[in-house]
Design a protein around this nucleic acid. Structure first.
Lengths: 208, 208
DNA sequence: CGGTTTGTTGAGGGCCATCAAGTTGAGTGG
DNA sequence: CCACTCAACTTGATGGCCCTCAACAAACCG
């Protein structure tokens, strides 16, 4: 429905497959049709920090239209089905396709600034609440909200987004479940009423 | 010397003056000739998180060429002298001016990803060391390294970049001075041998 | 020279990391 | 159908990093 595209090939990735390796030249972008992915950095001691999350409906990664190069690896967090969109086809289709990607790029840019605020100034509960709120809002924007909002991330994945240990993430989400803010269905997290999970941590919560 | 520019007006800002207010339309970018500035977010409780630092020689902010709008406020951290570059003049001068700004934009984008890693996974000492290293490297790239490298930021400013309290920043930098890694000249910090301050915290240090 | 910003230092405590065991559940192959 | 395996989740104990509160010193400024 977007960019006047339709015949591009679908690509499938299994969980833990890489959509891009570090330093790789990219002559395409993906649009995720199904599944989640992320950009990440690996530390020398093996810890991981996720620096961007890609949800169904998202472009991955818009900045390739400008740089043509993956600075960081992209990996599938679940099984993924993605449309492969050659950069040439976008540029040839006039400015509309490009400006759609530019919009996505600027959105990601501003989202990164927001995450810096979260990581710098929010408590564990605040960060996780902010993450769930952001996910819901983005899924809604992409027209992918099923009722209720389900989050197919492991607690380790969440920990690597919010800059905490999986152990502490577990304590926080367990407490949120105890308070009825979220539910578990097996191992996947469900946010039944996304508007109500923002307590003190709403605006940009405090650390104490 | 860049962009074939030369007659653009110089603008002066005093410390704490704003170069841009939130939501403001921007039909120009600045290039900082003298002085430092930053982009920041203010939290409801008054705390501040700096999300980007602008050093002498930097463009501020390159993304305005794409969005034409300031999403966050920019404030001068010292007295500033900046060249005002109308966006129209850049676009008219062909693609060179634009692509120079696109490069700067992508650099800032990648730098934000790096900061997410620092804030998510590094200890206080690691973050501050990473900040000093980044500053030195950027000043060198901009051709602005005096010997030795001086940093005109208050400890409060540093705290707002690295997501810590000024009290703890003081303890960390005092310890670094005790170890001879940095020096103080009055209230400004001097890094005599930037290559040597990266101890355990070098690559992407550990939190313990 | 009085007021304000900035830096400094101490005491105490809370948030979150670390270490260490389990428990649960999904997938696999016999 | 049932061991087996492995990833993911859970829970407790302990401690350290960094925050908070507080007071004071030093430098800057009009």
């Amino acid at each position: 429905m977007k960019s006047g595209l339709g015949k591009e090939p679908l690509r499938r990735f299994r969980r833990h497959d890489h959509l891009a390796l570090v330093g790789e030249t990219q002559d395409r972008v993906y649009r995720l049709e199904e599944g989640w992915a992320c950009r990440y950095t690996l530390l020398p001691d093996g810890r991981r920090q996720i620096t961007a999350l890609y949800l169904p409906g998202d472009f991955c990664e818009p900045q390739w239209v400008l740089s043509g190069r993956a600075e960081l690896p992209i990996v599938a967090l679940t099984d993924v089905i993605a449309t492969e969109i050659p950069l040439g086809s976008i540029r040839n289709s006039g400015d509309e396709g490009v400006s759609e990607l530019i919009d996505a790029l600027m959105t990601n840019f501003n989202r990164q600034s927001d995450w810096i605020v979260s990581l710098g100034r929010r408590s564990a509960t605040g960060r996780i609440t902010a993450l769930f709120t952001e996910i819901y809002s983005r899924l809604q924007h992409n027209g992918r909200v099923r009722q209720p909002c389900t989050i197919p991330l492991t607690q380790q994945d969440i920990a690597d987004v919010v800059g905490l240990t999986p152990v502490h993430v577990n304590r926080v989400v367990s407490e949120m479940r105890r308070q009825g803010l979220i539910q578990f269905s097996g191992k996947t997290i469900i946010v039944p009423r996304p508007d109500e999970i923002t307590g003190q941590h709403a605006g940009v919560g405090l650390a104490g």
